[in-house]
């Protein structure tokens, strides 16, 4: 995969910041408005995909490849489990272990914010990995002979 023309590359590099920012916004305000970890993660994945589509196989070789997706997906999942387990500090599984303020600020969701971030990372990396598996992956590296189902659960 070679990447696209200069116009696309320039536009993509301008846009990518905004896409990631929007994804981060959706993730971080998931407890206040529609959105949250999954929706924001999908946007993040779209941003990563934009890079790959515009610049071709180059970013894949510079560490944005299949292994990147695998590692971050696992880290997201482990992070989510850690948030759930830390609930034991407050007594039960999944309990809010940080103060649960009222109102509509960023920090009012208790541990919901943290779990949204973890889910966002997992979904973003997982979807990106799935896209790579289907499209760019075979072109950039030799065909891999195993596959893995991503058991995404919110």
């Amino acid at each position: 995969m070679r990447g696209m023309t200069l116009i696309v590359k320039t536009t993509a590099s301008l846009l990518i910041g905004f896409v990631v920012l929007f994804g981060a916004y959706i993730i971080l305000t998931g407890h206040l408005s529609p959105g949250g970890g999954f929706a924001g993660g999908v946007i993040l994945a779209a941003g990563l995909l934009l890079i790959v589509l515009a610049f071709g196989a180059d970013p894949l070789r510079k560490g944005l490849g299949h292994n990147f997706a695998l590692v971050w997906e696992s880290l997201g999942a482990v992070g989510f489990l850690a948030v759930a387990l830390l609930g034991f500090i407050a007594g039960t599984f999944f309990a809010h272990f940080i103060p649960h303020l009222t109102g509509f600020g960023l920090l009012t969701g208790g541990s919901i914010v943290l779990s949204n971030i973890a889910i966002g990372i997992k979904v973003g990396a997982g979807l990106f990995g799935a896209f790579l598996m289907l499209a760019a992956f075979r072109a950039s590296e030799s065909a891999d002979k195993t596959e893995k189902g991503d058991g995404n659960d919110t």
Binding site: L70, S74, A77, L81, A84, F93
Partner: peptide
């Protein structure tokens, strides 16, 4: 408090393994 561990332990193992 043990009950969630039945799900957490294999799930954590499953996600640590690829790394």
């Amino acid at each position: 408090n043990v009950l969630p561990l039945f799900v957490v332990i294999p799930l954590a193992a499953g996600f640590v393994l690829p790394v």
